[in-house]
Each structure stands twice: as C-alpha cells, then as structure tokens.
Amino acid sequence: MNSTGGNADGSGGASSGDCALPDTAPRPFDLFRSGWETEIGDGFPLPTFSPATTRDFRVKSRATKVGDVAITDLHGASPIRTEGPLNGVEDQVRMYVVQRGSWTLRAQLARSEQTVSAGQFLLRHIGRPLHFETPPDTTAKVLVLPAAMLKPLLGERQSITGSAVSAEVRLLVAHSNMIYETVADLGSAGVHAAHSTLIELAKAVARQRVDDAEPRLAPALAQAAKDLADSHLADPELSGTMLARELNVSVRNLQRAFAAAGESVSAYIRRRRLEEARLALTAPSGRLSVSELAAHWQFADSSHFIRAFKKHYGRTPIEYARSTMPVGN
C-alpha cells in the first residue's frame, strides 16, 4: 500500500498529500483506507481515527501482508490519533520500531499509557484493542504478528522494550524491508520462507539474541550488515569485524551470509565506496580532487584508488569525470 493522496499500488514510494484537491477528488485519508483494504484485507481492520486526523491527513505509508503477518511503514507529517469505543479481543503481538517522533498506546478507560520514543522498539502482546497517538513528524515500522508463536516467549512480562539498533531489531527491519521489494514476485514457497524468517527474527527479538548460524537468517544478516556499512562508508574502522561486532554475530557467520549472496564483505565495502566516489566525481559543484576522494573513501592512496576505479568502471577517475561534463565545458 502506498498513500498520501495518490496511489495504493503496493510500491515503495509515496506521493505528497499536500497539494490542493478538487472537491470531487478522494481525500488523502480515503485513499489511505482504500489502499489498506486492498493490500492488507479484512484480517487487519483499521481502527477509528479522530476527525482531526482524517481532515488533515498528511501521511506517507506502505504496507504489505505475508500470511498472518502485516508490515506497515509510516511517516506522519501530521499528528495521528485514534478514538471511539474499543470492543472485543485482539489476540496479537505487535512490534513498534520508532525512528523519529514517538508512538503512544493507551486503553480506552485506563489511566496508564505506554510510549515508544525515537530510537526504541516495543514488542507487546495485545489482548484488547488499544488507541494510539503520534505527534507530527513520526516515522515508525509496525508489525502485527501471530500471538501463538510469540506470546509464550514474552511470559509474564507481556512486553519487551529496547534499542531499535540492537542486532535482533536490525535484522528484523532489514528482512521486512526486503519483503517489500520481493513479495510481488514470490511464489508460495517464497512466501512461506519469508514468513518463517520473519517469525524467527521476531522470536530473536523476544529472546534478545539471534542465532546467526541459522541458514534462514543469512539473507537478513547480509542485508542488515549492508545497511550498516552504507551508513559508515567513510569510517576508517569499517570492516567485517566491525560489522559483526555491531550486529553481535561471529565474523565467520557474517562472511558466510555474504558468500551466500555471491559477494564478500570487503568486496561489498569497496564497491559501495567506489560508487559513492563516482557520484562525487559528477557533482555539479564542490568536486573533490582525486587525492581527496581517495582519502575520504579510505583508499590507501591515490594510486590504489585510481587502479580500483579503473578496474571497476573501465576508466580512470579523471577520464570518467571528463566524460560526464556537458558539451562545451
């Protein structure tokens, strides 16, 4: 699902809901609700949103379903609040991973509430429906998971909170993001595998440890390491050892996960650094020199950088930069 005023086609991006719409055009919230019903279905009904929320609904979202698991990514430029009667029973486990803003859960009549702040996650068994509220500029991932497989791991606690950058959460987030990209092309066996891995990773969050030797987790482990590497490409300490330490896995199992995808850890880091250097060479202004690029992207010296660049792109950095210059310059 894809919404803010535009599409409900299951793709990853979202169009802006801030533009003026003719009176006959569907409201952004109506498009969101239609997309949800199309992509997620009756098994995961939407709650009742406050009129203020539906009137000023500036939310980008995407959602998908894998068996009895629903995944939603949401960024709300406007505040979101649900209200109204809360009836019935919800025997579900939900996980909230908040990147920005906050997510507050509360019962209809209870005085207590629980808030997940930016950089935190909450894994909680939901026995009865709860209202939720988010302030403007909240970004979060929400997973609805089967209670039968996860509730026993929560025990008397009923909920677990912690850092959103823990190894277990990083792997779960990486795998759920991969599902968005692949679910449309998966056959029944692929859907089953994706679902099984989601459940195993959710169990790892509940146990607060991951079995990095589990073969089913290799793709998620490799993707989580790639995501982490991409945010540290200019770091001189970036290596397979550093990634394994941050993800709380063994170097050997991390290397195995990369090998299964056909690329070593060091090869991935070098390729991504070369890609970023290539983009810098074509920047319209403020271009760095070859020696500055080599230093910034952690190559031993200019000669090593030039050789690696030519081997990868077939031209030296200067030749590549000249080939991208507009005619007449």
Rank of each mutant, 00 (worst) to 15 (best):
N87W: 12
A70E: 05
G84V: 02
A77P: 14
Q92M: 12
R81P: 03
L74H: 12
V89W: 10
S78Y: 01
I80V: 10
E90Y: 08
V93I: 05
G76A: 11
D91E: 09
T72L: 10
I71A: 02
R100N: 15
T82F: 00
T72W: 06
M95L: 03
I80W: 05
I80D: 01
A70N: 03
T104M: 03
L105S: 00
V97I: 07
E90W: 11
W103S: 08
R81M: 09
D68F: 04
R106Y: 12
G101N: 12
V98G: 00
Y96C: 06
M95W: 02
G101A: 11
R94N: 07
L86P: 04
M95E: 02
V97D: 04
A77L: 14
T104I: 07
W103N: 04
L74A: 14
L86A: 09
E83H: 08
V89T: 12
G101H: 08
I71W: 04
L105F: 09
G88P: 00
V93E: 02
G101Y: 11
R94F: 01
H75L: 10
T104W: 02
R94C: 02
D68Q: 07
A70F: 03
R100H: 14
T72R: 10
R100K: 15
L74N: 13
V98Q: 05
T72H: 11
D91N: 09
G84M: 04
H75R: 14
M95N: 00
V93T: 02
T104S: 06
L74W: 10
S102V: 09
N87A: 10
E90T: 11
I71C: 03
V97Q: 04
D91P: 00
Q92A: 15
L105C: 01
R106M: 09
D73K: 14
W103P: 01
D91V: 06
V89K: 09
Q92H: 10
T104L: 05
D68A: 10
W103Y: 13
G76M: 10
P79R: 00
V98W: 06
V97S: 07
Y96F: 13
R81G: 06
L74T: 15
I71S: 02
G101R: 10
T82I: 00
V97F: 04
N87P: 14
R100Q: 12
P79H: 05
G76P: 15
G88W: 01
V98L: 10
D91S: 08
R100A: 15
A70P: 00
E83Y: 08
P79W: 02
Q99E: 13
V69W: 10
M95A: 01
G88A: 07
H75Y: 13
D68Y: 04
G84A: 03
D68S: 07
R100E: 14
M95D: 00
D73Y: 14
T82C: 01
R94I: 01
L105A: 00
A77E: 14
S78A: 08
H75S: 14
I71N: 06
Y96N: 04
A77K: 13
V97H: 03
D91A: 08
Q92D: 12
L74M: 14
Q99D: 13
I80C: 06
P85C: 08
E90G: 09
W103H: 10
P79L: 03
T82H: 00
T72C: 14
Q92I: 12
T72F: 08
G84K: 07
R106T: 08
E83P: 04
G88V: 02
W103D: 05
